[in-house]
Design a protein around this nucleic acid. Structure first.
Length: 212
DNA sequence: ATGCAGATCGTCT
DNA sequence: GACGATCTGCATC
């Protein structure tokens, strides 16, 4: 079942947290690939100095000022794309950055596009998951609440969620300490910076066998 | 396990 | 003209 627009028309921090456990579906002429969202970050527009829309309107953030549930995609460091979903009331420039997925189907497609067989690292970062799902800026502004090349489906909400500091925004003194990053704690597909404590890699034998 | 350099280009000043 | 909401490989401890 596709997640309806109303889901995204709520408080962005709530949307970011509640997106955990649900599914991203990507369809291309080569087939379908999907993954469970295990890590997100909220960007709160004009009250968040880390947000692209902090200083108001520009061509790049145009879609953030439209309806919720649309794809906001941007190029980072000249070589990777990052996928966000617009959220909050229409016209409020807030988004949820999708930071990591647990791959569920289309693994062969993902491996090829990522040029690696390591399943744990296929989608464990915002740039990686866009590469794995072949998400490019041609999908800028795509409606993610209807059947099409890119949409969301309800999955299984996790038993627990965790909040932590956002990654890579030390240039934003006002908000860099905010706990606006959300993860499914203990999930091995979360991007590196928070896997740390208590986490252990699968045993080496299983790893070579299953490419983990 | 931690750290750093390099790749590379659209967007905004 | 400067700078990233990143990733990878290589160096070092």
């Amino acid at each position: 079942m596709i997640i309806p627009r109303e889901f995204f028309e709520r408080d962005t921090l709530t949307v970011a947290r509640e997106l955990l456990g649900h599914m991203i579906v990507r369809r291309t002429n080569r087939g379908e690939a999907r993954g469970i969202i295990v890590e997100t970050e909220a960007y709160l527009g004009e009250k968040d100095d880390a947000a692209h829309s902090y200083k108001g309107k520009s061509e790049r953030v145009r879609v953030q000022y439209g309806p919720a549930g649309m794809a906001y995609i941007y190029l980072i460091y000249g070589m990777y794309n990052c996928l966000n979903i617009t959220s909050g009331p229409s016209g409020v420039p807030e988004v949820v950055l999708i930071r990591a997925l647990e791959p569920i189907s289309g693994l062969e497609l993902m491996k090829e596009r990522r040029r690696t067989d390591r399943v744990l690292q296929l989608c464990s970062g915002p740039g990686k998951l866009c590469m794995a799902l072949d998400i490019g800026r041609d999908l800028y502004g795509a409606d993610m609440c209807s059947d099409g090349p890119l949409f969301l489906e309800f999955g299984q909400p996790p038993a627990e969620t965790a909040a932590s500091k956002r990654i890579g925004i030390d240039y934003a003194p006002l908000c860099c300490e905010k706990l606006w990053r959300f993860t499914i704690p203990g999930n091995p597909y979360v991007s590196a910076p928070q896997r740390r404590t208590g986490q252990r890699r699968p045993d080496p034998e299983l790893r070579t066998k299953q490419n983990l």
